[in-house]
Design a binder for these strands. Structure first.
Lengths: 211, 211
DNA sequence: CCTACCGATCGGTAGG
DNA sequence: CCTACCGATCGGTAGG
C-alpha cells in the first residue's frame, strides 16, 4: 500500500515502476486512457502526481509500456506452450492447446490485455504505429499455424484462412468483454471453442441417422 | 457544412440533433468518450460548443443516445431479416442470414456500433446500467435462436450454447477492429463464418478418404 | 444558436 | 519522491 513505499528505502525504483504500470493497466482497462489521470495512477500506488515523472517521462510513455507488455506476455505464453508439445501431437490438439494458452494468458494478464484491446484505438498515432509491429508478429505466428495445418491436411482446402484467423481471434479476445473468472473454467471454454471450430455445431451424418 | 445551418432557417433542430449524434459517434469511435470534447463535436457540425446545449443537456446524454442507437439499429436489422424468412428455411441458412445481417448492419452503422463497443466500458455506471437492458434484449434474441435450433436437432446436443453464443458474438463484433469495406465483401465473410461454425474446419471422413 | 465566461481539473515542471 | 505551481483546456452556464 501507500505507506510501504515511503517506509522501505530498500524498495528499488524498478518495483515502483512495475507498480505504476500495474495500476495504470487496471485504470486504463476500467476508464480508458484519457479518463485516467496521472493523479489516479499516482494515487493508487501511494504517490503524488509529480512523482510519477521520476519513473516515466510522460503519460504516453506509460501507455506505450502497458500496450506492449500485454501482447508480449500472451505471445510468450502461447509460444511456450505450443513449442513444448511433442512432434506427433495431432493438429486438433495443437489448436486446443494454443487456444487454451491464449485464453489463460488473457485472464492472467487481464488488466494489461483488456487495457490493450480497449485503449489501443484511443492511442496517439505514433504509439499505435510502433505497437502494431508486435501485434503483427503475434498475428503472423497464428497465421503460420493455420497454414501448416492446412498443408498437413488438418484443415479443409476450401477454408478461408484469413476469415478463420479473424474469427478465432475475435472469439478469443471477446472473452475480455464478458468472462468472469470463477463462473466457468478457462479449460472448459477452450475445449468448447476448439470443438466448435474443429467439428462445427451441426450433427454429423451419423448423428442425423440416429435421429 | 457549417454555413448551411446558419443560412437555412427551415433546417429543424431535429436535423441538427441527428448531425450532432452522427458526429459524436464518429468521434467516440476514433478517440473514445473522454478524449472527445464538446468543442470537437460542435466543430464538426459547424457549431460553437455552447450551442450543443440547445440540443442536449449534457455530454453524457449524447453518449447514452449514441450507445442506444447502435444496438437498436442492429437489432432491428437482424430481426427484420430473420423474421422475413420463409418458415421452411433450414437452420443452417437461418444462421447464415442472421450472421450476414448482423455483419452488414455493423458496417452500415459503423460509427455507432464501433463507438458502442469501444466506449461502453468507459461510460459512467448509471449509463451502462440503463444501456445494458437493450444489450441484454439483443443477446436474448440470439440465445433464443440457438435454443430453437438445438431443439430442432440442427445443433449437436453436446454443444455448450453459452460458449457458442459468446464465440459467435466475439467473431462478429471483432470485425469492427479490422474490417475495411471494399477489401472483401460482407457476404463472403458471412458465408465463411457460417461454414466454419456449422461444419468445422476439419476435413470430413469423406475428405480424409480422398486424401 | 452565439459570445463570454466560470470553476475545476488536467499534464507537466521547478526546485528541492 | 514531494510541494507548489503553471498554462491550457475542459464541461457547462448566463444572457442574449
Amino acid at each position: 500500500m501507500a505507506a510501504s513505499a515511503a517506509l522501505n528505502p530498500a524498495r528499488k525504483s524498478v518495483i515502483s515502476r512495475q507498480e505504476i504500470l500495474d495500476a495504470a493497466a487496471a485504470l486504463f482497462r476500467q476508464k480508458g486512457y484519457y479518463a485516467t489521470t496521472l493523479r489516479d495512477i499516482a494515487g493508487s500506488v501511494g504517490m503524488k502526481a509529480g512523482s510519477v515523472y521520476y519513473h516515466f517521462d510522460s503519460k504516453e510513455q506509460i501507455l506505450e509500456a502497458v500496450l506492449d507488455i500485454g501482447i508480449e506476455a500472451v505471445f510468450k505464453d502461447v509460444r511456450h506452450k505450443v513449442e513444448n508439445m511433442a512432434e506427433d501431437v495431432a493438429w486438433r490438439e495443437r489448436f486446443h492447446i494454443a487456444i487454451e494458452a491464449h485464453l489463460a494468458s488473457l485472464v492472467q494478464h487481464g488488466d494489461y490485455m483488456s487495457a490493450n484491446v480497449r485503449v489501443f484505438s484511443q492511442a496517439p498515432e505514433h504509439i499505435r504505429d510502433r505497437h502494431m509491429k508486435i501485434r503483427r508478429a503475434y498475428e503472423d505466428y497464428w497465421a503460420n499455424l493455420y497454414h501448416r495445418a492446412k498443408k498437413a491436411g488438418a484443415i479443409r482446402g476450401n477454408i478461408n484462412l484469413t476469415a478463420l484467423q479473424a474469427l478465432v481471434f475475435g472469439a478469443m479476445n471477446w472473452t475480455i468483454e464478458w468472462y468472469k473468472p470463477g463462473r466457468e473454467k478457462i479449460e472448459t471454454l477452450a475445449e468448447a471453442y476448439t470443438d466448435i471450430l474443429m467439428n462445427g455445431v451441426q450433427p454429423t451424418e451419423r448423428d442425423s441417422a440416429a435421429k
